[in-house]
Amino acid sequence: MSTVLSYVAAPEGVPTRASLEVLTRARQLAEAGGHRVAAVVLSTDAAASADVLGRYGAATVYAVSDAAFAEPLNAPAVQALADVMARADAALVLFPSTEGVKDLLGALAIRTDAAVLPDVVEVDWVDGGVGALRPVMASKFMARVRAEGSPVLVSMRAGSVEASEAPVEPTVENVSLSLDASAATLREIAGAAAGMVDLADARIVVAAGRGVKDAAAKALVEELAEVLGAAIGASRAVVETGVFPATAQIGQTGKVVSPDLYIGVGISGAIQHVAGMVGSRTIVAINQNADAPIFDVATYGIVGDLYSVVPALIAEIKKHKAG
């Protein structure tokens, strides 16, 4: 029996929300197609997350533990995944669409002679192949695509499915590899501040744009995020000026987020930004220009000056939380 394999990103041993969503979908597709469902974790201590993965239905967990995975280099990951795919006889491999996955998907497809459907929002078996729906043209349209043959690699946008539990007792297969020495060498990582809510995984995102001009406005955005327990995102305009870190950029170039709630503060809604947030369930836009295109996608639009709207909003949310 072949396998539907689910790639799990588990920084510090904890699977990300997006990974559990993908595992959920893998489980459903395995059931529908009569396949086994398995998860693969590449980490310095890959077995650590096995319990959680079992809870979400991974019958087998391929745990590839190696010191190499402490560094975000693609060569060891490609090698390890190709190996696990062969071992598991993978017919379909699902990935969360993270930067790390984007970094290895193309090479892995060639290495394993797989067809690949990147960055989809829906995936299913269709007449002996794999069908998917994927946003294209800066998320202006959806393309209905189809891949033939086996294996097929599919990466899914966060928030495309709801993660659900289906507990099993997982079999952990510890995989040890002799990895080739990587030609690339890591010099350093200038990381994001610890303790920040990860953008792609966040349920609530507060995003700042060029309207957030000064330290006072930035402080308001940070306070709003804090009272909501939200991650902070940004438009390219304020990443370019260095006011917000590059990892906060949402959009075609930046990250794709699809939280339950996105609040855009002083963002005009250029197509390349909207590309990264149009999948959000509820969108609130705060902008002083009533004609800003962001209002075309907003569930609730507030035309007003952020310097007066955001403080009022913070006060109301505090009131709501208290009562």
């Binding site: 990103a9 975000p72 690339a184 060498t185 890591l186 350093e188 990582i189 200038a190 990892t247």
Partner: peptide, 10 residues
């Protein structure tokens, strides 16, 4: 630009 920050690679 990786998931967690800027990585410098030779």
């Amino acid at each position: 630009l990786g998931d967690a920050g800027q990585e410098t690679i030779a």
